[in-house]
Amino acid sequence: MSGVPTTGRSLVQLAVGPAEHGVTAAALAQWEVLRHDPGTVLVRTPAQPGVDGLATALRGVPAGVVHAHVTDRLFGRSPEEAADVLVEFAAGRDLVVSLHDLPQTSDGARNLPRRSLAYRRVAEAARHVVVASRHEERLLRACGADVPCTVVPLPVPDLAHAPAEDRAAPLRTVAVLGYLYPGKGHEQVLAALDALPPGVGLTAVGRPSEGHEDLVAALQARARAVGRTCEVTGYVPDADLPAVLRSPVLPVAPHEHLSASGSINAWTGAGRRPLVPRSDYVTELEDRTPGALWVYDGPDGLGAALARAWAQPDLTWATPGTVPGPTVADTVDLLRGVLSGVPA
């Protein structure tokens, strides 16, 4: 598809927050494709820039569509503040938002209504809304937002270029990829390790999300209590990630309340077949790429899946020649269709 028709207007790809944040990384990955389109501009700001910070960052940029990847924590210290910032910003710019981390019941009785209202306000203020799955589209409707919405799936990165050990090589540890935060599922994995031989531990590939640094000590204490180990790697640079994911580890993505998952995509992009709990979103992924995932049923099914994977490590690798999708370029083509349709 050709570049976005700008008719004299610019297209701004707004990337807020640190490059290692998954939402920011998604914006920057799309920019690497969009940058070749005429009239496109990348604008970077720190997390929680405020309205004044956004205005300053866009000073001198011609009028046009601003596309922002949004999760509330990147735009405010609270859901209310994030919504205030984006609603005010949208009053002066043609804002298209790609929403992430949509509110759901796992947010809890206090935060679910707060985040739902915030996301509804942002969706209603934007010129158009993009989400990463049909499941997220349903979550947005549950927020009360009756707005036009387009599904643009998260891209699957190409991480299969690093050398891999023999697919049948014995596994060394159970690995969970991504930020550490409550509900990610590390505790469920620790509880299920009794299905594996003594000495097998958990490796958390990543670092704690902001405000949850205490989880490292808590997980390690939990591991000691069940006679296991828990290693937390800290942030793994992009250049080193393929080798980590293609090493003899047992890949698990145990989060039970997913609406989209960069972690699952990273595993599959590295040629792995991660263990994942059944959910609406996982069913959607299975429909898109049959056989790319090892689906188990709830916490009770995790132990049996771990034991079988440990005994047959080749089953944790994708079928040779399997190419999961979509690519970043595929998602940008879908996004172009949204952005070019925003009237002046």
Results as ranks from 00 to 15, higher is better:
L193C: 05
E210P: 00
A118V: 05
E136R: 00
D194I: 00
L193M: 06
L219Q: 03
A218I: 12
A162I: 03
T7K: 13
V23N: 05
T150W: 02
V85R: 00
P313Y: 03
A344F: 09
A164H: 11
G64D: 10
V176A: 00
T71V: 11
G17I: 05
A142D: 14
Y179V: 07
A253L: 10
V70M: 05
E20S: 14
A123C: 02
L241V: 04
V236I: 07
P277Y: 12
P148G: 00
L315E: 15
R222G: 07
D37W: 01
R127I: 07
H36R: 15
V129K: 00
N111E: 14
L285C: 13
T331E: 12
G206T: 01
K184H: 07
D158G: 07
G269D: 12
S10Q: 14
V174N: 04
T105G: 07
N265P: 04
P251G: 02
V147I: 08
V338R: 01
L42R: 03
A311V: 00
P198M: 10
A309T: 09
L58M: 03
Y235M: 12
P251K: 01
L339D: 13
R138I: 02
R141T: 09
V97E: 10
E256H: 06
P198H: 06
H161D: 15
R141Q: 12
H21D: 15
E286R: 09
A83D: 10
A118K: 04
H161E: 15
A145D: 11
R115M: 11
Y235F: 14
V151W: 08
S247H: 08
V244N: 02
D314M: 09
T6M: 13
L202I: 03
P170D: 13
P326E: 10
F75V: 00
L86P: 01
P153Y: 05
D297H: 11
P343H: 05
H186S: 00
E256S: 09
L112V: 02
P343D: 13
A109K: 06
V156D: 09
V152I: 10
D94W: 05
D37F: 01
P79E: 14
S259L: 08
P299E: 12
T331V: 01
E286Y: 08
G92N: 11
D101Y: 02
D94M: 06
G341E: 14
A63S: 14
G53Q: 09
L258T: 08
A239L: 12
L117T: 13
V122F: 04
E256C: 05
D146E: 15
L99A: 03
L139M: 10
N111R: 05
R167E: 15
G291Y: 04
H128E: 14
E256P: 03
L180K: 00
L102N: 03
D297V: 04
A19G: 03
P198E: 13
Q13E: 15
D300M: 10
G144T: 01
A260S: 13
A90S: 12
V33Y: 06
R59H: 12
R272F: 07
G3E: 13
G50A: 06
D94K: 03
